[in-house]
Amino acid sequence: MSKMIVSDPDRCLACKSCELACAMAHCGAGALAEAAKLGAHPQTRVHVEPCGRFGAAVQCYHCEDAPCTTVCPTEAITRQAPDDPVLLDQETCIGCKYCMLVCPFGAISISSKGKAMIKCDMCIERTSEGAEPACVAACPTGALKFEEINEWLAQRRRRSAEALRAAATTEP
């Protein structure tokens, strides 16, 4: 997996734009207003939870050794290739909630239509066309970012190196 969605609580204002965008991206309806008028019940896969003064977005982290894939009795949750997201097939899912119980992040919830579970698919349709996941594209403050993992890591290391240097130079 080469890219991931990174959530920064320091930048999240809890506006829930990501929740709306996620729900819309997964309901097949066109515009938001259209879905609201039709009384459709699009469901979000990303959840903004209270955190600090405002909030933070929580969603599936697409774990490398994902416990949900291991416990699923019908093999509804799978990862096709090493760099792919962890996907849940609603047709195969029986809604036993094992995955919900083992997920350390509370990222898997029950579909409002019942019968199956739902989780973030990292907007695989959008990303395969080169677009960002819907939640990231909707975030007005950059609290959600779609990062190339190696680049993100490199940045983090550089920052830590700078911090080390600063600490060394301020040493009395």
Binding site: C12, L13, C15, G55
Partner: peptide, 10 residues
């Protein structure tokens, strides 16, 4: 209602 929108609060 938690968390409440920060744009509105600010």
């Amino acid at each position: 209602m938690q968390p409440q929108c920060g744009f509105g609060q600010l």
